[in-house]
Simulated assay, not measured.
Amino acid sequence: MSTKITAHKEEAHYIYEAPVRLWHWVNAFAIVALCITGYLIGKPFPSVQGEASDHYIMGYVRWIHFASAYILMVGFAGRVYWAFVGNKHARQIFLPPIHKLGFWQGVVHELLWYAFIVPEPKKYEGHNPLAALIMYFVFLWGMVFMILTGLALYGEGTGMDSWQFDYFSSWIIPLFGQSQDVHTWHRLVMWILICFAITHIYAALREDIMSRQSLIGTMISGWRTFKDSRKDD
């Protein structure tokens, strides 16, 4: 008795260029450092006895926070630049085609896929429509908000004669009402980005396991692998 074996075909497409992959991982580590140190800045360690200069723990926490913030900002500026000079996938999270009906049909299909209602996802070389939508509205604008409010709060420490105060603190803090309000919103969006990161990691792992296409490996090598040769409509 013989068993018929269906041939397995694998496709691979080069998606993410090296600058995009480098930015992704540097940005990820910077966000982790910012979230941990940002939480500790808002909920500092208990006071200890003795001179403050002998216990510089919170000083190091703040230094790591500020250094990570500048790394994130420089990386973000580089990522915006690469959106102009890189391939079409480098621009995807900046310009999701929200004006196209097919895009929203893809969003609905991906929602059904994540809800385990449809049996399989569609093939996408870059981000699927749902991922592009969330990356744009939650991650991209969340990052812009955190950079602006972070610079405004930092400007309070650098003083009224600093460029951070002139360009950011001078108008952002009055816009929100007072400094504490900026702190509150800065911290709230931090938790939103933490929830985004958890969902992002879950979705990437889920797609690598359940779908017909690679995700995590793509952000390491740049190549997206499709595990069969079926074409979507």
Results as ranks from 00 to 15, higher is better:
29 F>N: 04
32 V>F: 07
34 L>D: 00
34 L>H: 00
35 C>K: 03
38 G>A: 13
39 Y>K: 04
40 L>W: 14
43 K>S: 08
44 P>M: 01
44 P>T: 01
47 S>R: 10
51 E>M: 02
52 A>C: 02
52 A>P: 02
53 S>R: 11
54 D>M: 15
55 H>I: 06
55 H>A: 09
59 G>L: 09
59 G>W: 14
60 Y>K: 02
61 V>G: 01
61 V>N: 02
63 W>H: 14
64 I>R: 07
65 H>D: 10
70 Y>S: 15
72 L>V: 01
73 M>C: 10
75 G>D: 04
77 A>W: 01
77 A>V: 12
78 G>A: 07
78 G>W: 01
80 V>G: 08
82 W>Y: 15
83 A>T: 14
84 F>W: 11
85 V>L: 05
88 K>A: 06
89 H>L: 06
93 I>D: 02
94 F>H: 00
94 F>L: 04
95 L>P: 03
99 H>M: 05
103 F>V: 08
103 F>D: 10
104 W>E: 05
105 Q>Y: 04
106 G>A: 04
109 H>R: 12
109 H>E: 05
110 E>L: 09
112 L>Y: 10
114 Y>T: 05
117 I>F: 11
118 V>M: 13
120 E>P: 01
121 P>I: 08
122 K>C: 12
123 K>V: 12
125 E>L: 14
126 G>Y: 09
127 H>M: 13
127 H>K: 10
131 A>R: 11
132 A>Y: 08
132 A>R: 11
134 I>Q: 07
137 F>S: 14
138 V>E: 03
139 F>Y: 14
